[in-house]
Design a protein around this nucleic acid. Sequence first.
DNA 1: TCCACGTATCTTGCATGCATCATCCGTGCG
DNA 2: CGCACGGATGATGCATGCAAGATACGTGGA
Lengths: 229, 229
Amino acid sequence: MSPQRSLKPTPRTRRATPADDGPSASERAYAHIRARLFDGTFTGNMMLSEGDIAEELAISRTPVHEALLRCEFEGHIRLYPKRGALVLPVSAKEIQDVLVTRRLIEVHAADLAAQSRELGPGLLAQVDTQADLLHRELDEEFSTADDAFHKQIIQATGNGLLDRAYAMARDVPLRVGNSNLRRHPERVAQLIAEHRAIAQAIADGDPAAARAAVEHHLDMAMKSLLRAI
Amino acid sequence: MSPQRSLKPTPRTRRATPADDGPSASERAYAHIRARLFDGTFTGNMMLSEGDIAEELAISRTPVHEALLRCEFEGHIRLYPKRGALVLPVSAKEIQDVLVTRRLIEVHAADLAAQSRELGPGLLAQVDTQADLLHRELDEEFSTADDAFHKQIIQATGNGLLDRAYAMARDVPLRVGNSNLRRHPERVAQLIAEHRAIAQAIADGDPAAARAAVEHHLDMAMKSLLRAI
DNA sequence: TCCACGTATCTTGCATGCATCATCCGTGCG
DNA sequence: CGCACGGATGATGCATGCAAGATACGTGGA
């Protein structure tokens, strides 16, 4: 009668055979949709169809459907039954909401990081890397480095839930910001300076300064993003 | 060449025919799994199989698979390819993480609510309802009312992202707490008193008191939950 | 006894097909 | 000319089927 086997707690991480088929079809569909969302191919109010995406990737609709479900959960699109997927436009309100949320999370994380000071040297080095990427005009890499900088501070909290919440909050700016940064290199230089202030406060073990630096950084980011849409 | 039609921005909310088929199979599967997670039928380290759940609900594996994906995203289970779904146990660490996250969110929301004071009367009334439910020993309804109380404060911020983050954070205590409350009615009485303090501070328009009341409430909740696992 | 190996069994990933629902559009009527 | 109606079209929800990966187990050999 029991429909589930009661326990089988041996999910060993090793695999007898690595059997690396690469990412699954579902993951490829998900990555593809996100990439289009971030590079601006899928813009606000656009209507997507599973079939078209499936055809493009030469896979069936099933994994595409799963990817769309996930994107809906993450707030990027909205699924209308039997009608299709509407790409939600990024509104000013949403950007404000995201930045408020990020502020709550990142201020908390930076405070903790400053208390331990461990991250300091690593973060300062990362800021140098960012400056280098700016000089070499490697936009894509810069965006990745920016992401890594913030993510590292969050992850140092060890709080997986915060991490997931942050991941959702970060996607929205990416939809606006990726194309935006390219057009405003002066903003990027400023952004790096703000990063440096955060890293320095953490390295100094000054939680109050770290909180203030993060708040300033996010304030500036919000203004920049609001100008961009 | 363009795989997507560029726009069809007419997702009218009205339906020509209501055509109320009730919830979709996928939603039913999702609700079913969550219910089992919360009522303790699906306990930590248990291994679930799509086929069994599908059979139980008399639907196919497809919608069950979608529901499991969503549960994985919400952090309740982990999917092992070709092996099944492992129900993740709720650890003390996770409870702490969740309460830290909730504290960030709810303190912020309570502060805002106290600034506007609008929610005050409604919240105080809700607390009275909770006391009534306690006296009548309606555990299920009480849990729902508790959820509604917190959710209302969050939703008043109008920040959809915070709302979603809170929803994820709230699920974890539900897996521990539903069965726990039943066994500790004295904790419930205390909990209601804490709710009343929060509601009163908001009604008084005292943000500092509201923040403090929320922090106290969540501290107590954490202790209670940690004792429960 | 203990380990290696081949096979049966279980489970999932995904392709495919069908039924249904929403939308679009042409036609006929007032 | 405007509008209602009906079929064509396109989209999804979900059932089903197949192939492949993972595990369990029985058997044979050292």
